[in-house]
């Protein structure tokens, strides 16, 4: 029992250290925040005029997708942060301390929630500026943000493992794009899945990013009335389906990442 308590206490110390580092290098936070603004503006104004959503506004449709995409992209940060830690001298200090072996990884995924929360705030504000609105109540809206953060947290664990496997920060970024681009584009993020050809449509329907996007759109009330309900169980139960993914991802990748950290730090 005390082992678990120490694991959380140690992770909190590492998370605090990571947050201090965000403050020390505010440029990183700035770039993290600029890209979602850019995405919102680009898609809203470039594609927004070309794509029609029957009975609604593309911009409103779009924001849910951007939210989902951005939190997934944000997870790259976790991988990059860990890859960097592994190369720095401080890891030798961590290795010599009687700290919990999960602390560095748990602390990193925890502190990246700060990044994701900041990103969501900025995106929501930008969205409001270009005409996006929350058409439900505060409860649903908070649920939507909560679900996004939870999903981001889970995805961080995937990237944590990537960051501990690949040798450098640059490789983390390149490796993650290979996964993240298809995941976030072969989905309902930018276009309704009905428009996609057969196999892609099937993939998009079962893609957790689609479910997350659908859940967020529903919770914000951004789906125009009269839109036919989507095909497939995942998109008909998007909140539940997203939560299942969150649980499954954490259950698989948290132990893998922690084991990987121990393996990497055990050799010298």
């Amino acid at each position: 029992m005390s082992k678990l308590r120490y694991a959380f206490a140690d992770a909190a110390v590492i998370a605090q250290r990571n947050v201090i580092k965000i403050k020390r290098v505010p440029e990183i936070l700035m770039f993290v925040l600029i890209s979602p603004i850019m995405f919102v503006l680009l898609f809203a104004y470039v594609f927004g005029s070309a794509i029609d959503i029957p009975g609604g506004s593309y911009r409103e449709f779009l924001i849910g997708g951007i939210f989902a995409q951005t939190v997934v992209f944000g997870a790259t940060f976790t991988g990059a942060g860990l890859a960097e830690d592994m190369q720095k001298g401080i890891i030798n200090r961590f290795r010599s301390l009687p700290m919990s072996p999960s602390a560095v990884v748990m602390g990193r995924t925890a502190s990246d929630v700060v990044y994701n929360a900041a990103t969501l705030v900025i995106m929501a504000l930008t969205g409001l500026l270009v005409g996006w609105r929350i058409r439900t109540d505060v409860g649903d809206a908070l649920l939507a943000f909560g679900l996004l953060l939870l999903f981001a947290y889970a995805f961080s664990w995937i990237m944590a493992l990537v960051g501990l496997i690949v040798p450098s920060v640059e490789v983390v970024n390149n490796a993650s794009f290979i996964v993240i681009f298809p995941l976030t584009f072969v989905a309902n993020t930018f276009v309704p899945t009905e428009l996609l050809p057969g196999p892609l449509k099937l993939f998009a329907e079962w893609n957790p990013i689609s479910a997350l996007t659908q859940a967020v759109r529903e919770l914000f009330g951004n789906i125009p009335p009269g839109t036919p309900s989507p095909e497939g169980w995942p998109l008909q139960n998007p909140v539940l389906y997203s939560l299942i993914w969150v649980v499954v991802i954490i259950a698989i990748f948290a132990p893998l990442s922690i084991a990987r950290y121990q393996k990497v730090t055990a050799k010298s």
């Binding site: 201090i20 580092k21 020390r24 720095k88 401080i90 030798n92 200090r93 010599s96």
Partner: peptide
């Protein structure tokens, strides 16, 4: 029970 100080300073540069 131990403290270790290595050949290369194990400190965090940004802190």
């Amino acid at each position: 029970n131990i403290g270790l100080s290595g050949q290369f300073a194990a400190v965090d540069e940004q802190l």
